[in-house]
């Protein structure tokens, strides 16, 4: 009996893990689409940006705070900031993305080009947006 339960629960874990992987890869591939549409022309298709103009997104150590990333996408960001000891004093315009698009593109950026980070979920993005802007409401 115990063996059967163990077998079943292992099977459930395998299933859960597989659907988890699918959800992850779907988020990453969707995130890549979002990145290519809205981010790539400044941050470049390999995330390296343009030194002095558009910060790199590759292993900068700046991507850990997911709430900050949500805020940057939602409201834009203005310099001066330091990325990898380079000073940037420009302005990134805000980008109107849905909660899902925001989660997907953050997941893509944080897991590409050598970056690695836990996946974030749509509810986490929604909560982060609310924390950033009181009473936030898309169109």
């Amino acid at each position: 009996m115990k063996k059967a339960i163990l077998f079943i629960s292992l099977g459930m874990m395998a299933l859960a893990s597989q659907s988890f992987k699918q959800a992850n890869s779907s988020s990453l591939s969707n995130g890549k689409n979002v990145y290519e549409t809205y981010c790539m022309s400044c941050h470049m298709d390999n995330g390296t940006g343009v030194p002095g103009a558009f910060p790199s997104l590759v292993k900068t150590g700046n991507l850990a705070d997911k709430n900050r990333l949500v805020k940057i996408i939602l409201q834009g960001v203005r310099g001066p900031i330091n990325v990898k000891e380079t000073k940037y004093d420009g302005e990134m315009a805000s980008i109107s993305l849905s909660d899902k698009e925001t989660a997907d593109v953050i997941n893509y950026i944080r897991n590409s080009w050598g970056n690695k980070a836990p996946m974030i979920t749509v509810p986490e993005v929604a909560a982060a947006k609310k924390a950033v802007v009181k009473g936030y409401q898309a169109y």
């Binding site: 022309s41 400044c42 470049m44 343009v50 030194p51 002095g52 103009a53 558009f54 420009g90 302005e91 990134m92 315009a93």
Partner: peptide
């Protein structure tokens, strides 16, 4: 859209100081 070093780039937010 222009090319910088042959790569497509939007020029409306690229400060001239960054071009070199």
């Amino acid at each position: 859209t222009i090319h910088l070093n042959g790569r497509a780039l939007k020029s409306c937010q690229l400060p001239v100081a960054a071009v070199g």
